[in-house]
Simulated assay, not measured.
Amino acid sequence: MSGPPEPVWLVAANVVLWRRYGEQGQELRPGTKAYRGGAKVYVVDTYPGTGHRQLTTVGHGRHTGHWITIDTGTRHLHTFRAQLVYGPAVLKRCAGRGFGTREEAEVLAALLERVAREERHAHHGAPHQDGCRCHECLSVTPG
């Protein structure tokens, strides 16, 4: 009989509340097709050859609430951070693929945050409409 699985360091993130969609990004959609806006997800794999534009994530699905594993565009995530994960459901789906130490997970989280910001900025080259509620516009603090 084995005990609980060993915790691993993963990168956690949140799904953007609103994302730009459609021709020139003039429409807004809440969250993603698979995740609700604001949902917490865990990054269990990256694709360095693609410039980290796609990530394999584990989180609660939008429609069923069950745990799902799905590839997600980095631009649809924000607030990347290192987190020691104990949850058996997540550990089962990541199959021991952690990111090593806390420091390694923090370095990856910082890189993914930068890539996500660049991807959101570059994906739709058109200017934002007035009253836009996409993640980038909501993140800007009036100054």
Score class of each variant (00 low, 15 high):
S2Y: 09
G3D: 10
P7F: 06
P7G: 09
V8M: 08
W9G: 09
V11K: 07
V11L: 11
V11A: 13
A12Q: 06
A12I: 00
N14S: 14
N14K: 12
V16M: 01
W18I: 00
R19E: 13
R19G: 11
R20C: 01
G22D: 05
E23Y: 08
E23I: 06
G25H: 10
Q26H: 14
Q26R: 13
E27A: 10
E27N: 10
E27T: 03
L28S: 11
L28P: 00
L28Y: 07
P30W: 04
G31K: 08
T32G: 07
T32R: 07
A34D: 13
A34E: 11
G37D: 02
G37Y: 01
K40W: 01
Y42D: 00
D45Q: 13
Y47P: 00
P48S: 04
T50M: 02
G51I: 00
G51E: 06
H52Q: 02
L55F: 07
L55I: 02
V58G: 04
V58E: 07
V58C: 12
G59T: 00
G59W: 00
H60S: 13
H60Y: 02
R62W: 06
T64K: 14
T64G: 14
T64F: 12
T64E: 13
G65N: 06
I68D: 03
T69R: 15
T69L: 12
I70Q: 15
I70W: 15
D71Y: 10
D71W: 09
T72S: 12
R75W: 03
R75P: 02
R75C: 01
R75L: 13
L77A: 11
L77D: 05
H78I: 02
H78Y: 14
T79A: 13
T79K: 15
A82M: 03
L84W: 06
V85H: 05
V85L: 06
Y86V: 02
Y86D: 03
G87E: 14
P88R: 15
A89P: 00
V90P: 01
V90W: 02
L91I: 05
L91Q: 02
L91R: 01
L91H: 04
K92R: 14
K92Y: 14
R93D: 06
C94V: 14
G96F: 13
G98S: 09
G98W: 04
G98Q: 07
G100C: 10
G100L: 03
G100D: 09
R102M: 11
E104H: 15
A105F: 06
E106G: 05
E106N: 12
V107C: 03
V107R: 12
L108K: 03
L108W: 08
A109K: 05
L111A: 08
L111G: 01
L112V: 05
E113T: 10
R114A: 15
R114L: 04
V115T: 13
V115Y: 02
R117T: 08
R117L: 13
E118T: 09
R120T: 10
R120E: 09
H121A: 13
A122I: 03
A122E: 14
H124F: 15
H124M: 06
A126R: 08
H128T: 01
Q129Y: 02
Q129E: 10
D130V: 12
G131T: 02
C132S: 13
C134F: 14
H135T: 04
H135W: 14
E136F: 03
L138T: 12
L138V: 03
L138G: 03
S139T: 14
V140S: 06
T141D: 00
T141Q: 11
P142K: 09
